[in-house]
């Protein structure tokens, strides 16, 4: 049992150890394996195959296990570190200490959105992007998208999602208009380019965080730790409401063969959502 803390409460020494562990994983090549894995499991809800990670009920348990695996890798480097969380309803500005030179570094520069400050700036030698979708080798960001400004989700946005009485509902995809899962994951019905909560944060950070290789930006882990914490809070607020679907969908359901119900083993770990409902077996949030 260990503790995940709010990044805004980290000491200078805690930040240094977390950053050092990230840089060590990167040097070893293990970091990029996690980046590729995330891209590999990005299956959309128009595809005729199982989708565990996005646009599906298992968005929360899949990412919980994904973060646990990553955290274990970090702890193999330094047993004293854990993934901190970024409460973007509070630290909602590019001037937050999150983006300081001793932690995540700042936004990208105007011309090419290259991050030029902090430990993950290409020019500082420790963070070369290899698993990506363009020829560029540097981390990119566009915090708040100044050209066409977008804001981070608010406390009200989060409260609205936490008030959802049901975990998820049919058709169990990005079109769902009710339920906690898509209220947080953030797909907007209708398909126009509007974003909520989880998706909106990817949009706000911009650059590589918008793409299929979003974990290339280490703030990905801090973002998803907070998304995981929102699941914990929702569970506490709705103790009678569990993960859905609780049973595999019947063969007549369009989601049959694509959706992971409570006891369906999720790849690549062969772990069931039911095994991931209780985070206190591994960590707690402070």
């Amino acid at each position: 049992m260990y503790t995940r803390i709010n990044q805004r409460n980290m000491t200078r020494a805690q930040k240094r150890r977390f950053v050092d562990a990230l840089l060590t994983l990167k040097r070893s090549g293990r970091y990029d394996e996690f980046v590729r894995m995330h891209g590999a499991y990005y299956v959309t809800d128009a595809e005729e195959r199982p989708r565990a990670a996005h646009m599906a009920p298992s968005f929360f348990p899949w990412h919980r296990r994904y973060l646990l695996e990553f955290e274990r890798a970090l702890q193999s480097v330094d047993p004293g570190v854990s993934v901190p969380y970024w409460d973007w309803t509070v630290d909602d500005s590019p001037s937050s200490s999150l983006w300081a030179d001793d932690f995540m570094g700042g936004t990208g520069r105007g011309l090419d959105r290259q991050v030029t400050t902090g430990p993950f700036a290409y020019r500082n030698g420790g963070w070369r992007i290899d698993s990506r979708i363009t020829d560029g080798k540097f981390l990119t960001r566009d915090l708040g998208r100044p050209r066409n400004p977008v804001t981070l989700p608010t406390k009200e946005d989060v409260a609205e999602a936490l008030a959802e009485p049901v975990y998820d509902t049919a058709p169990w995809d990005s079109r769902v208009t009710r339920g906690f899962r898509n209220a947080v994951e953030g797909w907007n019905p209708g398909g126009e380019a509007r974003w909520r909560n989880h998706n909106r944060v990817h949009r706000w950070v911009g650059g590589l965080m918008m793409g299929s290789t979003s974990p290339n930006d280490p703030v990905f882990w801090l973002h998803h730790a907070f998304v995981d914490l929102l699941w914990v809070r929702w569970q506490a607020a709705h103790p009678e409401a569990g993960y859905l679907p609780a049973q595999p969908l019947p063969a007549t359901d369009p989601g049959h063969g694509k959706i992971f119900s409570l006891d369906d083993p999720m790849p690549p770990w062969d772990v069931r959502p039911s095994e991931l409902l209780d985070h206190t077996r591994h960590y707690r949030y402070a």
């Binding site: 128009a46 646009m55 995809d173 398909g191 126009e192 998706n199 979003s214």
Partner: peptide
């Protein structure tokens, strides 16, 4: 690389968290 959502909109490898 372009993918589709169930509602018929499109997303790409560059924009994975919004659709058009």
């Amino acid at each position: 690389h372009v993918m589709r959502r169930a509602d018929g909109s499109y997303l790409s490898m560059v924009n994975h968290y919004e659709s058009f």
